[in-house]
Design a protein around this nucleic acid. Sequence first.
DNA 1: ATGTCGAGGATACCTCGA
Length: 265
Amino acid sequence: MADTISIASWNINSVRARLDIVERFLAEEGPDILCLQETKVVNDTFPAGLFRQYGYNHQMLNGQPMHHGVAIVSRIPIREDDRLDWQANGEARHIGVRLDNGVRLENVYVPAGGEEPDRTINPKFGQKLDFLERMIEWSSALSDKPTILTGDFNIAPLECDVWSHKALINTVSHTPVEIALLARLQASHDWVDLGRHFVPAPERLYTWWSYRARDWSESDRGRRLDHMWVSRSLADKAVSHRVVEPARGWARPSDHVPIITEFAF
DNA sequence: ATGTCGAGGATACCTCGA
């Protein structure tokens, strides 16, 4: 008998500022496992009780003061957490666990990269590129370990992953150099991009809309920054993949919405 | 592109990062 497990990923942009919409998401969608990015909270003040109320008794946290921070909360056992610091700069951008069936789940928050797509004048952009290079090294060494890689990659690779390819070609998140690096990362483990596995190009598929739009829904200037990738051997275990777009319209939203994949292992 | 969030310092707004 197949074991069905749903796994969600959500850049929450401060988990403490989003208690109401987190609760709504848990009540309405109730994934078995939720990967969070940008928790913006140290581990001691993570709102563990709220998640426990909804049965998420397994919690693996990698927080830091003020910025970044990732977490995996789960209703089913998760073990062997590890926290990779790819750039050895102390930033909390990764947490990985192993499920009881042996599958690894890796939750990552790739650096945003600042405004200017030029590492000589914008060190943050260089940091983003270097981070991806380290991820490629890590990914290349995974060999045949069945792995799920999810999170906020901060890159929208395809033309149909942004509202306007022309307008954003020089905007960080959609520049050719970032897209080339993401393609190398994907090739390094033959990762299957479940977003496009279930919603093939050129169909519109976004997971992020800027706070700066007057009406995010009407202008619909979205980008697909959040991803769920799996090892080739896991691709046929994924039975559905959804973007919970209405969450962008909830009160006090994150600028990202959750993605949810259901697996039949 | 425009111009909106959240965190946290030392406030009754500012800077930074996104």
